[in-house]
Computed example of a mutant assay.
Amino acid sequence: MRKEPRQARSRATVETVIQAGARILGNEGWAGFTTNKVADLAGVSIGSLYQYFPDKLSLVDAIRRRHLEDCLAVMRKSKADGLSPVQFVANLVHAMVDAHSIYPGLHRVLLDEAPSSDDYRNPNSEFEIEYLNYYAEAVGAYRNRLPNGADHTAALIISDAIDGVIHNAARRGMLTDSTMQSELVRLVSLYLADAGDEATA
Protein backbone atom coordinates (compact mmCIF):
# COMPACT_ATOMS: atom_id res chain seq x y z
CA MET A 1 0.00 0.00 0.00
CA ARG A 2 1.11 3.54 -0.71
CA LYS A 3 0.17 4.66 2.80
CA GLU A 4 -1.49 3.14 5.84
CA PRO A 5 -4.96 4.45 6.69
CA ARG A 6 -4.97 5.90 10.20
CA GLN A 7 -8.39 7.42 10.67
CA ALA A 8 -11.60 5.40 10.85
CA ARG A 9 -12.92 7.04 7.68
CA SER A 10 -9.73 6.18 5.77
CA ARG A 11 -9.81 2.59 7.01
CA ALA A 12 -13.43 2.30 5.90
CA THR A 13 -12.46 3.60 2.44
CA VAL A 14 -9.65 1.07 2.12
CA GLU A 15 -11.95 -1.75 3.26
CA THR A 16 -14.59 -0.74 0.71
CA VAL A 17 -12.00 -0.63 -2.07
CA ILE A 18 -10.62 -4.07 -1.15
CA GLN A 19 -14.10 -5.61 -1.08
CA ALA A 20 -15.00 -4.00 -4.40
CA GLY A 21 -11.72 -5.23 -5.88
CA ALA A 22 -12.36 -8.77 -4.67
CA ARG A 23 -15.83 -8.75 -6.19
CA ILE A 24 -14.65 -7.50 -9.60
CA LEU A 25 -11.64 -9.82 -9.64
CA GLY A 26 -13.88 -12.78 -8.84
CA ASN A 27 -16.59 -11.86 -11.35
CA GLU A 28 -14.51 -10.58 -14.28
CA GLY A 29 -11.09 -12.19 -13.84
CA TRP A 30 -7.70 -10.57 -14.19
CA ALA A 31 -8.42 -9.42 -17.76
CA GLY A 32 -11.47 -7.43 -16.62
CA PHE A 33 -9.93 -6.05 -13.46
CA THR A 34 -9.20 -2.30 -13.57
CA THR A 35 -8.76 0.35 -10.90
CA ASN A 36 -11.44 2.47 -12.59
CA LYS A 37 -14.00 -0.34 -12.22
CA VAL A 38 -12.99 -0.85 -8.60
CA ALA A 39 -13.26 2.85 -7.78
CA ASP A 40 -16.67 3.03 -9.46
CA LEU A 41 -18.04 0.01 -7.57
CA ALA A 42 -16.55 1.25 -4.29
CA GLY A 43 -18.09 4.68 -4.81
CA VAL A 44 -14.79 6.53 -4.45
CA SER A 45 -12.80 8.69 -6.82
CA ILE A 46 -9.88 7.15 -8.68
CA GLY A 47 -7.68 9.67 -6.87
CA SER A 48 -8.84 8.34 -3.50
CA LEU A 49 -8.05 4.80 -4.61
CA TYR A 50 -4.56 5.82 -5.76
CA GLN A 51 -3.90 7.43 -2.38
CA TYR A 52 -3.62 3.91 -1.00
CA PHE A 53 -3.01 1.65 -4.01
CA PRO A 54 -0.61 2.99 -6.65
CA ASP A 55 -1.63 0.33 -9.19
CA LYS A 56 -3.80 -2.75 -9.55
CA LEU A 57 -0.97 -5.09 -8.54
CA SER A 58 -0.80 -3.47 -5.10
CA LEU A 59 -4.58 -3.82 -4.81
CA VAL A 60 -4.40 -7.52 -5.72
CA ASP A 61 -1.74 -7.98 -3.04
CA ALA A 62 -4.09 -6.36 -0.52
CA ILE A 63 -6.92 -8.67 -1.60
CA ARG A 64 -4.60 -11.67 -1.16
CA ARG A 65 -3.53 -10.47 2.27
CA ARG A 66 -7.15 -10.07 3.31
CA HIS A 67 -7.87 -13.65 2.26
CA LEU A 68 -4.83 -14.91 4.18
CA GLU A 69 -6.01 -12.96 7.24
CA ASP A 70 -9.43 -14.61 6.91
CA CYS A 71 -7.74 -18.03 6.84
CA LEU A 72 -5.64 -17.17 9.88
CA ALA A 73 -8.80 -16.05 11.68
CA VAL A 74 -10.29 -19.50 11.03
CA MET A 75 -7.20 -21.20 12.45
CA ARG A 76 -7.15 -18.97 15.53
CA LYS A 77 -10.71 -19.99 16.34
CA SER A 78 -10.26 -23.69 15.56
CA LYS A 79 -9.33 -25.48 18.76
CA ALA A 80 -8.99 -29.21 19.24
CA ASP A 81 -9.78 -29.04 22.97
CA GLY A 82 -12.42 -31.62 23.89
CA LEU A 83 -13.30 -32.49 20.31
CA SER A 84 -12.86 -35.76 18.48
CA PRO A 85 -10.67 -35.57 15.37
CA VAL A 86 -13.77 -35.80 13.19
CA GLN A 87 -15.47 -32.91 15.01
CA PHE A 88 -12.36 -30.75 14.91
CA VAL A 89 -11.68 -31.35 11.22
CA ALA A 90 -15.34 -30.93 10.27
CA ASN A 91 -15.46 -27.55 12.03
CA LEU A 92 -12.21 -26.52 10.38
CA VAL A 93 -13.18 -27.64 6.86
CA HIS A 94 -16.58 -25.98 7.02
CA ALA A 95 -15.07 -22.72 8.29
CA MET A 96 -12.41 -22.78 5.55
CA VAL A 97 -15.06 -23.43 2.91
CA ASP A 98 -17.04 -20.47 4.25
CA ALA A 99 -13.94 -18.26 4.03
CA HIS A 100 -13.46 -19.27 0.39
CA SER A 101 -17.14 -18.86 -0.47
CA ILE A 102 -17.42 -15.10 0.07
CA TYR A 103 -16.34 -14.49 -3.54
CA PRO A 104 -16.23 -18.01 -5.02
CA GLY A 105 -14.62 -17.01 -8.32
CA LEU A 106 -11.90 -14.98 -6.64
CA HIS A 107 -9.66 -17.87 -5.67
CA ARG A 108 -9.40 -19.30 -9.17
CA VAL A 109 -8.24 -15.88 -10.37
CA LEU A 110 -5.77 -15.46 -7.51
CA LEU A 111 -4.38 -18.94 -8.08
CA ASP A 112 -4.31 -19.07 -11.87
CA GLU A 113 -4.43 -15.59 -13.38
CA ALA A 114 -3.34 -12.68 -11.20
CA PRO A 115 0.39 -11.99 -10.70
CA SER A 116 1.70 -12.50 -7.18
CA SER A 117 4.55 -10.97 -5.23
CA ASP A 118 7.58 -12.84 -3.90
CA ASP A 119 6.23 -12.44 -0.36
CA TYR A 120 3.16 -14.47 -1.26
CA ARG A 121 5.30 -17.30 -2.63
CA ASN A 122 7.68 -17.33 0.33
CA PRO A 123 7.35 -20.70 2.16
CA ASN A 124 8.91 -19.15 5.27
CA SER A 125 6.70 -16.09 5.49
CA GLU A 126 5.21 -14.98 8.80
CA PHE A 127 1.83 -16.13 7.56
CA GLU A 128 3.08 -19.63 6.71
CA ILE A 129 4.83 -20.01 10.05
CA GLU A 130 1.79 -18.95 12.08
CA TYR A 131 -0.65 -20.87 9.89
CA LEU A 132 1.25 -24.16 10.12
CA ASN A 133 1.87 -23.73 13.84
CA TYR A 134 -1.88 -23.90 14.47
CA TYR A 135 -2.05 -27.21 12.62
CA ALA A 136 1.00 -28.50 14.51
CA GLU A 137 -0.64 -27.60 17.83
CA ALA A 138 -3.70 -29.63 16.86
CA VAL A 139 -1.55 -32.61 15.85
CA GLY A 140 0.37 -32.40 19.12
CA ALA A 141 -2.87 -32.19 21.09
CA TYR A 142 -4.14 -35.45 19.59
CA ARG A 143 -0.77 -37.09 20.25
CA ASN A 144 -0.75 -35.84 23.86
CA ARG A 145 2.46 -33.84 23.61
CA LEU A 146 3.90 -30.51 22.67
CA PRO A 147 4.41 -30.35 18.90
CA ASN A 148 7.71 -31.81 17.73
CA GLY A 149 9.35 -32.04 14.32
CA ALA A 150 7.20 -34.96 13.21
CA ASP A 151 4.06 -33.06 14.20
CA HIS A 152 5.15 -30.07 12.12
CA THR A 153 5.60 -32.40 9.14
CA ALA A 154 2.12 -33.81 9.76
CA ALA A 155 0.81 -30.25 9.99
CA LEU A 156 2.25 -29.46 6.57
CA ILE A 157 0.58 -32.53 5.07
CA ILE A 158 -2.79 -31.72 6.66
CA SER A 159 -2.58 -28.08 5.59
CA ASP A 160 -1.70 -29.02 2.01
CA ALA A 161 -4.52 -31.56 1.90
CA ILE A 162 -7.16 -29.10 3.12
CA ASP A 163 -5.89 -26.14 1.11
CA GLY A 164 -5.38 -28.19 -2.03
CA VAL A 165 -8.82 -29.77 -2.02
CA ILE A 166 -10.59 -26.50 -1.17
CA HIS A 167 -8.63 -24.49 -3.75
CA ASN A 168 -9.36 -27.02 -6.47
CA ALA A 169 -13.01 -27.12 -5.42
CA ALA A 170 -13.08 -23.33 -5.84
CA ARG A 171 -11.59 -23.71 -9.32
CA ARG A 172 -14.26 -26.27 -10.24
CA GLY A 173 -17.20 -24.48 -8.64
CA MET A 174 -17.61 -27.30 -6.10
CA LEU A 175 -17.16 -25.47 -2.79
CA THR A 176 -20.70 -26.26 -1.68
CA ASP A 177 -20.46 -29.95 -2.66
CA SER A 178 -21.30 -31.80 0.55
CA THR A 179 -19.68 -35.03 -0.64
CA MET A 180 -16.40 -33.27 -1.30
CA GLN A 181 -16.50 -31.74 2.18
CA SER A 182 -17.37 -34.99 3.95
CA GLU A 183 -14.69 -36.94 2.08
CA LEU A 184 -12.09 -34.29 2.96
CA VAL A 185 -13.12 -34.50 6.61
CA ARG A 186 -12.84 -38.29 6.49
CA LEU A 187 -9.40 -38.18 4.88
CA VAL A 188 -7.87 -35.66 7.29
CA SER A 189 -9.53 -36.92 10.48
CA LEU A 190 -8.31 -40.47 9.86
CA TYR A 191 -4.78 -39.16 9.43
CA LEU A 192 -5.07 -36.91 12.48
CA ALA A 193 -6.46 -39.74 14.64
CA ASP A 194 -3.37 -41.85 13.92
CA ALA A 195 -1.25 -42.14 17.06
CA GLY A 196 1.75 -41.16 14.98
CA ASP A 197 3.94 -44.18 15.68
CA GLU A 198 5.18 -44.20 12.09
CA ALA A 199 5.98 -40.49 12.24
CA THR A 200 8.13 -40.89 15.33
CA ALA A 201 9.83 -44.14 14.28
Rank of each mutant, 00 (worst) to 15 (best):
K3Y: 10
K3F: 09
E4Y: 11
R6G: 08
R9A: 15
S10A: 14
R11K: 14
A12R: 13
A12T: 10
G21K: 03
A22T: 05
I24Y: 07
L25P: 02
G26C: 09
W30S: 02
W30C: 03
A31E: 15
F33C: 09
F33E: 04
T35I: 11
N36L: 13
V38G: 00
A39K: 04
L41H: 01
G47D: 00
G47M: 03
G47Y: 00
Y50I: 08
Q51R: 14
P54I: 11
P54L: 08
D55L: 00
S58Y: 04
L59S: 01
L59N: 00
D61K: 13
A62N: 08
R64W: 07
D70R: 15
D70M: 12
C71K: 08
L72T: 01
A73K: 14
V74W: 04
R76F: 05
K77I: 06
K77T: 10
D81N: 07
L83F: 09
S84H: 02
S84I: 07
P85S: 12
V86Y: 10
Q87N: 10
F88D: 02
N91I: 00
N91G: 15
M96C: 11
M96E: 12
M96P: 02
H100A: 11
I102H: 08
Y103K: 06
G105N: 07
L106W: 00
H107C: 08
R108Q: 14
V109Q: 00
P115I: 13
S116K: 12
S116D: 09
D118W: 15
D119S: 14
Y120R: 11
Y120T: 11
R121G: 15
R121K: 15
R121Y: 13
R121Q: 14
N122C: 12
N122D: 15
N122M: 12
P123K: 12
N124G: 15
N124I: 14
E126K: 05
L132T: 04
N133P: 06
Y134R: 14
E137C: 04
A138M: 04
V139T: 02
V139Y: 03
V139R: 00
R143N: 07
R143G: 06
N144S: 14
R145F: 09
R145M: 07
R145D: 03
R145S: 11
P147R: 05
P147F: 03
G149P: 09
A150S: 15
H152D: 03
T153A: 11
I157Y: 10
I158N: 02
S159H: 06
D160I: 00
V165K: 05
I166S: 06
A169C: 07
M174A: 15
M174I: 05
M174W: 13
D177E: 13
D177F: 12
S178D: 01
S178R: 06
T179E: 08
E183F: 10
L184H: 04
V185Y: 02
R186C: 10
L187W: 12
V188H: 03
S189Y: 05
S189C: 11
L192W: 01
L192Y: 02
A193Y: 09
G196S: 02
G196A: 03
D197H: 13
E198W: 08
E198Q: 03
T200W: 13
T200K: 12
